[in-house]
Design a binder for these strands. Sequence first.
DNA 1: ATTGACATCCAAAACGTTTTGGATTACAAT
DNA 2: ATTGTAATCCAAAACGTTTTGGATGTCAAT
Lengths: 336, 336
Amino acid sequence: MPVTIKDIAKRTGKSITTVSRALHGYQDVSPETRAMIVRVAEEMGYTPNLLAQRLQKQRTDTLGFILPTFGPRFSDPFFSEFLAGIGNTAGEYGYDLLVSTQPPGEKELEVYRQKVMGRQVDGFVVVRTRCQDPRIQYLRKVQTPFVAFGRTEGDLDYPFVDEDGVAGMKMLVRHLLSLGHQHIAYISPPLEFTFARDRMRGVREALAEANLTLAEDYLAFGDLTQRSGLAQAQKLLSLSKPPTAIIAGNDLMAFGAMSAVQQRGLRVGRDIAIAGFDDIPMAETAHPPLTTVHQPIYKIGRMITDMLIKIVRGEPLETQQVVLQPQLIIRQSCGE
Amino acid sequence: MPVTIKDIAKRTGKSITTVSRALHGYQDVSPETRAMIVRVAEEMGYTPNLLAQRLQKQRTDTLGFILPTFGPRFSDPFFSEFLAGIGNTAGEYGYDLLVSTQPPGEKELEVYRQKVMGRQVDGFVVVRTRCQDPRIQYLRKVQTPFVAFGRTEGDLDYPFVDEDGVAGMKMLVRHLLSLGHQHIAYISPPLEFTFARDRMRGVREALAEANLTLAEDYLAFGDLTQRSGLAQAQKLLSLSKPPTAIIAGNDLMAFGAMSAVQQRGLRVGRDIAIAGFDDIPMAETAHPPLTTVHQPIYKIGRMITDMLIKIVRGEPLETQQVVLQPQLIIRQSCGE
DNA sequence: ATTGACATCCAAAACGTTTTGGATTACAAT
DNA sequence: ATTGTAATCCAAAACGTTTTGGATGTCAAT
């Protein structure tokens, strides 16, 4: 039913070739013919069939993004902002965004394979890298363009954007030390994630600077959710010698920790310090506002997409590995 | 470079037709030939070129979802959950999800038009409907399948899923009334959204049942963000006769209102009641936990996608308009 | 009158599939 | 020997584009 280039050809009495060339501004079609064809195309409401165009041009103008969802009640404010970043940038450059949702696991890689082999996307945005990341290994192997948010173990030779988690955590821990805290606990995200190792290393190194160590019972592990932050903080608080400060590996778990503190009738920022990492929008308006390390998620989304588009277009990349320096955001959750 | 059906044909000495038919399980190819072709295809690592397949089949197996982003610091936990719902369902049925981000406005409709005319998607998920929704008018006009989350004015004859906002708000207001509140303020989302009108009507009707009205200075308007909830609540609290309860039109604004209360040194749930709407995951772990009206966002995402897929496949729909009954979630933000 | 240059046009191939409408063969029934 | 039937195969068209490699015509210079 929709009007094709063939319809225009018939209507104008010109050939398919000429119509195509007229609409694309080639110089070998006379001004009058072009004007006429353009007018008719407009009148008939022509829009090119992108599938046909892409099949012929052998590129998809589509970027892939596979969202790692953890369980049905998946809600990570982190991702909506990141998605806005890639979505907006892709749109500006005329790229589509193909989104899949997949929990990490075997099937995850299957989805990548399917999109790559089915030639559905020109490249991928890979997010939340793991130390040995099969996705990155695969994409490198099949030589499909991608840009990662985060590094893997060994910092191989592939493009990524990351924030320096070690430095970020060190700033945070030093801040807590400067406030007099000696008993600092840490709730870590699963260590398969590279950023989790970095952040943990930051904690350890900063403590070491003050001749302290991270005691075994002051180290807990959560799964990035608020719920797990709450559970782990409860455990920490019921130690015989509870910490005076709890750092969570991300803001969501920090919120959970705040709840745990408040459930015990303690006041966050007075009785105990809580800090997070990421600086999601809600951190600012939490009660009390959360001290955290800022990560410009939207901007990172934009940068990554910019880089990816340059790569798929074959344009040179000035820097293919970007490590952003973090910024400490001091709010009230660690006291004044 | 990638292996095509033609390569297999050459390698097996069979025709393109036979290869295609063998791989699709047609009955007019001998078992031996089929086995041979399948084996070779496997060996050569064949995967069909989806673009070519779709061009030929004249359908895209792709669903469109245009995410209304408001500003760069866009973060709506609501959407990540909803996205998980549609993403998972689409994936299960073998559909791809094409996501665009676009702030509402003229360009928004342009994106719909482009996807429809470019034959990029089989149908759309439309979210956050407005009273006179140009997207719905357009999609109806061009007869493109879609399912909306939310209604428009007049409840026209199109498929949607919605929660009964009037009933939800009535439950909430009645709850507050039963706790003795007589001075209830309401922070409404922009009234262009249909759900905002419904929720407001719910507030008004429930107050009317108790022979109360919503005083003009107890009605504020926010833009769904936490920040605006905070600002509006501050305004309400500095009235000469401040309300004893503040209802926000969504949870995010309720969180903002909680911050405003706490900034004044008041205690949410004791000195003043705060309630929201949506029951996003964070509502449960907020401090204090937020009384709100539950909306099964993930499930709604799944239902909508289910319906949409049925429609694009031409299967019959048992009910094309679903209105879910809400559930009041009583937590501590309105006192015991 | 040729030649060359230029402007304008187009047929056909190509992208990788699926489907249509037979063609061929073998074998049994007449 | 012909006919019918079933099994197996395939050439060609189609989906809607873009691109290649000319074809044609005009006009000025020789």
